[in-house]
Every structure is written in structure tokens, then in C-alpha cells.
Design a protein around this nucleic acid. Sequence first.
DNA 1: CAGGCAGTAAACCGATTGGTACAAATTAGA
DNA 2: TCTAATTTGTACCAATCGGTTTACTGCCTG
Lengths: 184, 184
Amino acid sequence: MVKTVFEKSDAIPLLAEAFRELGYEGATLSSITARTGLSKGSLYHFFPGGKEEMAEAVLDHVDRWFIAHVFQPLEEEEPGAAIAGMWQAVDAYFRAGQRVCLIGAFALDETRDRFPQAINRYFVRWISALAGALIRVGKDEKTATQLAEHAVLGIQGALVLTRATADGKLFTRALERLAAVLEI
Amino acid sequence: MVKTVFEKSDAIPLLAEAFRELGYEGATLSSITARTGLSKGSLYHFFPGGKEEMAEAVLDHVDRWFIAHVFQPLEEEEPGAAIAGMWQAVDAYFRAGQRVCLIGAFALDETRDRFPQAINRYFVRWISALAGALIRVGKDEKTATQLAEHAVLGIQGALVLTRATADGKLFTRALERLAAVLEI
DNA sequence: CAGGCAGTAAACCGATTGGTACAAATTAGA
DNA sequence: TCTAATTTGTACCAATCGGTTTACTGCCTG
């Protein structure tokens, strides 16, 4: 017998994918139930606050993933290895550009005004974690911040362009170029 | 009693701003009428095809603007001046990052699948026009294409990050950094 | 000055929206 | 195995969705 009973932790990744592909407004309750297989009963059982609470949980889940796999390594581990690991983690996480950044997508429309702190926190921490690693690798503070900003914004832009042009190799190519810029 | 009379060409920029801020799904007919001042009667008089036709007209309008102010100069005018003009036009058009790229925003969610050609065409032409100018300025073809891709994606990413961090100076700063990369 | 037509307002439509209620089913713990 | 708690499907709700229709402006032209 196949397991048909979900718990909250099963629901979040499914919700994440729905919001990622449809956007916050585009993700209607019925499209969410259709693609996750979770009924409204289950959804509102796990997330009494409705769609907004679902999105909050997803945002938090994404944030945690990046903290564990990207931000903390940049902050605590050997900077050279952590930066190399970041490029690898990013390429894997975004599936070579086939997967969009939920938080970046939310930032673009009025969804931003619904979750301003979560969206701001994610990018600010990414940039400062990367800048910190660059400082420890020998850059001066101003250069490091500039380069970190450049890298993070390049990743977001590469995701936009990959979706827009349907060029499957663009993302990985852009990542290599961005990595090269940090080496200078 | 004053009666404000619009024509189609007045409606398009207003619609553009609505779609830009709300996204395609987020822009409901009532939110559109509220912020444009155009009634549904007027809207459906101008765009019998409904919301989709409104978005098509807006997409076309944006494309035309970029052709006239960015793509054609890059393709036809003296490349150095055209590239410098591009940075200026982009900074002005996106209001130093306060304004989002409609086409980039559409590219991120399933709205892309509604207007795939228009979205693809915009970015492909931008990259190839810029690459062409870079070639005429002395770069080899491969480097030129890479740099052009890098610049366009950087602009899109800078818009995402500006919205996300609410850092008003980020966009112009990113533009300067991107311009510097092209100089190498 | 009569008619036509681009533009407007408002009432209206069925479908779908996010959200609720609650009983039935399933689970884990004793 | 009995029970209490968790999880789920379904029917339902008011509000709003995108879209249609109709009646009405005011201006331009014949």
C-alpha cells in the first residue's frame, strides 16, 4: 500500500515547486491541490493561515536550505573551498537554470510587499556572507562587497535569461563567467 | 461634468505600469481599472481579446521602445557611443531600478508560456545587438557574445536585487560595474 | 442638423477565487 | 484491540474573477 498520508514537512517542497512555477498570485488553491495531490483539507490543516502561511513556510524552507548549504559554509569554512562549493550548490539547486529562484520571483511583483523582511534577509545575508569570504581570501572590504553583489545579481539575472531564452546552457556558462570575475 | 476620453495609445503605458507592478496574474481587471482610470468598457473596446490582448499590446510597446532607443542604435550607430547611450537609456528607463522589467518578470513564471516568442525575441535581439557593437569595437565574436550576455543578465539581476533589498543606489552602481566589465 | 461611431459606464453573467466546516478515514500509542 | 489524535475528502460559502451586454454619451462628418 502506497503512503497517502502527508505531514507538513512533505507538503512544503511540493508547495515550493508550485509557487516557483506559478508565482504567488498565479498559484491558485486549485492549481496547488492539483499539482501537489494535497486536498484543501490537508492544506488548511497544516497551514491554517491559508496561502500566505504556505508561502511563508516555503520562504523559510528555502532560506534554511541556503543557510545550511551556502551561507554558513561561506561564513565559517575555508573561504576558497566555500566559494567553489557555492557555485556547485547553486548550479545543482537551480538545476542548471531550469528551476527559478522563488525569492527572486517574489521580489519582482507586489508579492514583495507581502514578505519584505524574508526577501530582504535572504539576499542581504547571501551578499554579506560571500563578501566576508572574499575578504578572508584577501580582497579589501569595498571590492569584496562589490564583487559579492555582482555575483548574486548575476545568478538572478542568469535565471531570468535562461527562462526567457530557453537556452539550457546559459546558466552554467554564466556561473563560470561570474566565478572568473571573482578571481580577478 | 468632465469626461476623460482616452484612446488606445494612452491606455498602453498605463496598462504597462499595472502589469509591471502586479504581474500578469496579479493584475486583475478591477485592479487595472482602479489604477488606470479606464473602465472595463473602454478596456474591452480597445482590446476585445481581453487581458491577453492587453498584455500583448504592452509587450509590443516595450519592444518597440527598446528597438528605437537601444537595439537600433547598437546595430547602426557608432558602437562606442551606442553602448554608452545604452547604459544611459537603461538607467533612465528603469528609473534607477525603481521600475521593473516587464518582460523579465513575465519570463520568470508561467506567463512565459503565454508569450514565449515575444519574451525570447526581446532578449535575443538585445544580446545580439550588443554583441554586434562589441565586435565592431574590436572584440572577437566569442568574447563579444559572452560579454553581451553578461551585461544583459546583469541588468535583469540588478533589477531583482534592487526590488529585493530596497537599496536605491544598487542599480546605478551595478550598471557602472557592468560597463566596466565590457571595457576590459 | 442628422446620423454614425469611438469611447464610456454600469449592470450582469457563469466560473473560480481563497477560505470554512465537519464527518470519515487513518494513524500511532497503550 | 481500543482509543485519542492526526490527516483527509467533500460540500459549501461569500467575494471576486475575466468577460459580455446594453444603453448612453459627445464629437465629427455628410
